[in-house]
Design a protein around this nucleic acid. Structure first.
Lengths: 138, 138, 138, 138
DNA sequence: GTGGTCTAGACCACG
DNA sequence: GTGGTCTAGACCACG
């Protein structure tokens, strides 16, 4: 994998470790990181991004806890082998549900009503199916 | 206006002042706060919500800077009389649709498929209609 | 809560942050920490235990992610209010299942057979029901 | 002995050398390795398991120090002829029962109830019998 | 006042 | 060589 795939925006206000987590997720989602691939070592990526190694370690730990990568003390860090397997399906579904509950809860908090939310969400998902959500961002 | 219209979730991770800003926006958007209506005073709302005085002050300052409310030294705080053009643009910036597009985009980025997302979201919205999303958190 | 409730064994080889996580869990399980109770602040506990504040922060973050405590930026850290509610039941069940899958997997790894494991486990659970597991440790 | 008797889980978080020590112990305990049997050489096992040479050497050293195996310079490594008294005590130290008592105690400490634990454990053991625990991880 | 992020660097465990 | 833990301390966000 090309280390150039990572880029940190130090002015964004988004914590560096979150930016790294999200970029690894995106690389996996887009198939640029495949099961079994080794990630750059904590210290190597830290030095390339001009960031402290603890910051990278924290990002890798989060990805490990999320079941996306496998950290092997003394050997390195690898993309999970079985990202198609039962277990990873389970983890992905769990994570999806957690995110949705959090998001819906925040809409409820802001005073939106279930029906207006539902219809707005369905519209956006329709665009997604047609490939139009991504277009805005790529 | 009824102070009961506000509810703070201290566990959500969303800063309290942001929650207040968003709720005022939502109340205005839904016509529950009308131009000329007076908001509760900073101290009154702080004590009702059991929140630090500075937190409410910060929320009101943001709403004032955004032109949604008008703070009149010694008289109180009122919803702006003219909520067209500029202001409504701002209101829409943090609108329901924007939040949904951002959320869906992040699901897409993580590699979820429209159909699994849609069905999981619909399940959560069903619970919401039945009053169960909130129950989990209260 | 009494800060004396915590004690760290620096020679045990068990990471300090894990020791703290486990002690908070135990205090909650034994009812010495009740929903709504405030934990000592990160810096306060750090200075009492002669430990770096980052170490405490890491322990608290883990407890927060596990849904046992609620960290409120700028306000402090509290035992979750609704440790009887739906959500916490859900979290506890999830955590139980995760721990069991991990433990059973390790038995399988070591070459034990399902039946010998099952019968040995059932024996220990019987003692537990009779209050005898705890006796060894208290 | 068949080298296939060993299987390493690099994702388990359990150090590889501990996994090997435990598997040799289990094989002896179950009579699949008998006194006098020769173990694979360090280099042979290392290459089969795709593990660092030093890792196997460390595991064998621990087993040797525990008196379970006998390393004979230039001749190979053999299961100890006399596995009574002292040695079997060691074997039992990390025995099935000990691990189970430790695990159940930790569940009790966390406040789980015997019945919920028992039923969750039985579910997982059922999957194990059907070969599904392992599947999730392979 | 309280928690969060990040750094620079020491020392350790595992391979 | 590779990751983990911990420290001491700077600076920031929120209340």
């Amino acid at each position: 994998m090309n280390t150039q795939s990572f880029s940190i925006d130090f002015r964004s206000g988004i914590p560096v470790y979150i930016q790294i987590v999200e970029q690894v997720q995106a690389l996996i989602a887009r198939g640029e990181l495949l099961p079994g691939d080794q990630l750059p070592t904590v210290r190597q990526l830290a030095s390339e991004l001009r960031v402290n190694f603890n910051t990278i370690a924290r990002a890798y730990r989060m990805l490990d806890e999320a079941g996306l990568i496998s950290t092997q003390q003394g050997r390195g860090t690898y993309i999970m082998e079985s990202l198609n397997g039962e277990r990873s399906k389970f983890l992905k579904t769990r994570s999806l549900e957690d995110q949705i509950v959090g998001f819906i809860e925040s809409l409820r908090q802001q005073g939106y009503q279930p029906d207006e939310a539902a219809s707005a969400i369905n519209k956006v998902i329709e665009s997604w199916k047609l490939g139009q959500v991504s277009r805005q961002f790529e």
